[in-house]
Write a protein that binds this DNA or RNA. Structure first.
Length: 550
RNA sequence: GCGCCCGUAGCUCAGCUGGAUAGAGCGCUUGCCUCCGGAGCAAGAGGUCACAGGUUCGAAUCCUGUCGGGCGUACCA
């Protein structure tokens, strides 16, 4: 059998057959869809083509459907075509073509569902990008999990992906970090000083300060400006950030410091370019960018009257840098607080005649953390936060990732810490993993009962409704991957895997796999293997472990 | 005030470019292990899809307005 990576052949061939029938009927070519039927009694696939034509043809949709149906030739793999009110045409697949999908999955293995659209192409995903002023909080978790999973989706589709972390260690927040360490240092060496309110209150500052005190004694007592405070803090904090990310399976390929843009003159270059393009003007001693010409509600200051750029200028310079690196796709993963700023960045790039078509911005809404019905407010400064590490300690990496991924980016995710810290079996991620572990156990059982695994076995024994339903859902996986690639929404995959696990559990209760009927048992074993393969592929993309036992 | 996002079962959320009887999990009620893992399966109760108009063969989905919540709207990032 020929290998295929794109497993949408049924949808495609139905689509083509409809097209052909349309022209045979002399009907105009219009937009219509082939979709998976939501209910079993409507077959496997359905098209709305007759309904869409109603208006133009001014005819009863059922009549149109009948005429189209009459003009279908033989469609390979379709066993039944039915017309249903108000005018849908429903297609039912043959058992043979369904059974064959298991062979396809078996042969493609962990390539099943991969699209080759990204082969030979590069993609950069920027995410997390929190300044190293303190440990990552649970608030950073959503962007972290999303960004990494989006990167995995792109990798799955063939892209060579670079994960980048953008940070700034020259700003005001970082200076406050240094000052905070200095004050804790003074306290550490026995000075009776009050710790300023505007400084970072967290215990990690104390640890860093006491390390400096241990190694240097009172040496820096009168040197609040000494770089040792900020630098030590930055290194230490970054170390912990990297460890936190690693715990949930996230590794960045590069850390890009905003400072580099200044040192290499990229900020000045960007400013010069913008000036030359004519989109800058001076007012009140500041330099403004004509964002309104790109649809913004007001113009933006990009260099303050004190000569210091606002964050928009380095952001633009950074994106020029990214564009110059020639990625085929650039993806920025931001929180909702950036939703107003990225249009300005894109506008800046466009004013420089740079193409922004390959830049995709994934904006996610914030997470509300509640505990016993009460909102948990977070602030790094006041140290009123739950760190990402705390969360991982409580519920584990798999659950943390799944919780952050299971909701649409656009929805305001509610993370109930009390619920998440409860018993793990309430967590939906275990439902998926349980299906995977259950299958592993079936294989052990098969071995014990001397039912040999046979990839070439006869699959025509799989005729039970639950078996065919399960196969049909398996065959949807490539479509889900294509959807995720298009929308950058890992959530669709979470939902799908949940549906797949449910179909498997149902099959499991209805159909005993290991029986005295060896040919049937072997066919069912192969179905189990295919299910395990798809679960495994999906969980890999989500960055969630695939336990053999639980 | 203005812009973006959201409002669907008691709670947390799905619902793909408008389509067939609006779904799942948790919680509640009730069944299912002499049999491959019961972290499972099945059944039941629970809805004016925030509200009001509009568009059309057809609206949870698109448009307008109102109400409610989140985030922006800084010469903070």
């Amino acid at each position: 059998m020929q290998k295929r990576k794109q497993s949408l052949p049924m949808k495609d061939s139905i689509f083509r057959a409809v097209k052909v029938a349309l022209s045979k009927c002399g009907f105009p070519s219009i937009d219509f869809f082939i979709e998976r039927s939501q209910q079993g009694k409507h077959g496997h696939f359905a098209t709305n083509v007759a309904l869409v034509l109603t208006k133009q043809l001014k005819r009863n949709p059922l009549e149109i459907a009948r005429e189209i149906t009459k003009n279908f030739g033989k469609i390979e793999g379709i066993e039944k075509i039915e017309i249903a009110p108000p005018g849908f045409i429903n297609f039912t697949l043959s058992e043979t073509i369904l059974q064959n999908e298991i062979h396809v999955i078996q042969q493609l293995g962990n390539e099943y569902g991969k699209l080759s659209t990204g082969d030979g192409k590069t993609c950069q995903v920027e995410f997390v990008s929190a300044n190293p002023t303190g440990p990552l909080t649970v608030g950073h978790g959503r962007g972290a999990a999303l960004g990494d999973t989006i990167a995995r989706i792109m990798e799955w589709n063939g892209y060579s992906v670079e994960r980048e972390y953008y940070f700034n260690n020259a700003g005001k927040q970082m200076r406050i970090l240094g000052t905070s360490v200095y004050y804790r240092y003074l306290q550490q060496i026995g000075k009776d000083v009050e710790f300023p309110d505007e400084c970072y209150q967290g215990d990690y500052i104390r640890e860093i300060a006491s390390k400096i005190a241990d190694q240097n004694g009172r040496k820096f007592e009168d040197q609040p400006e000494n770089k040792i405070f900020q630098d030590t803090a930055e290194n230490k904090v970054f170390e912990t950030i990297k460890i936190s990310l690693r715990r949930i399976g996230i590794f960045h390929d590069s850390f890009f410091n905003e400072n580099e843009l200044y040192e290499k003159g990229k900020i000045d270059d960007a400013l010069y370019g913008l000036k030359k393009s004519g989109y800058l003007y001076e007012k009140d001693g500041a330099i403004w960018f004509k964002a309104t010409e790109f649809g913004a509600e007001k113009d933006r200051v990009i260099v303050r009257s004190n000569g210091e750029p606002t964050y928009r200028l380095p952001d633009i310079a950074y994106h020029i840098e990214k564009i110059n690196r020639n990625y085929d796709v650039i993806i920025d993963v931001f929180g909702a607080d950036h939703s107003a700023t990225y249009p300005d960045v894109l506008a800046g790039l466009q004013s420089l005649n740079l193409s922004t078509e390959h830049i995709r911005v994934a904006i996610h809404q914030f997470v509300t953390f509640t505990r016993d019905g009460q909102k948990v407010k977070m602030s790094t400064r006041k140290a009123q936060f739950v760190t990402l590490d705390d969360l991982v300690d409580l519920v584990g990496s798999d659950a943390v990732r799944y919780f952050f991924l299971m909701r649409a980016m656009n929805s305001h995710l509610n993370f109930d810490l009390a619920l998440a810290t409860k018993q793990s079996d309430e967590n939906p991620v275990f439902y998926l993993q349980y299906a995977h572990a259950r299958i592993s156990n079936i294989f052990l059982h098969a071995e014990a009962k001397n039912v040999p695994f046979n990839p070439e076995c006869n699959l025509s024994h799989l005729t039970h409704a639950e078996e065919l339903d399960l196969i049909f859902i398996l065959s949807e996986f490539p479509e889900i991957i294509a959807l995720c690639k298009r929308t950058l929404e890992p959530q669709s995959l979470c939902n799908y895997l949940n549906k797949l696990a449910a179909a498997f559990h149902k099959f499991y209760t209805e159909c005993k796999v290991i029986t005295d009927n060896i040919p049937l048992s072997q066919a069912r074993l192969l179905l189990c293997a295919a299910t395990k393969q798809v679960l495994s592929n999906g969980l890999t993309i989500l960055g969630i472990s695939k336990p053999e036992r639980m």
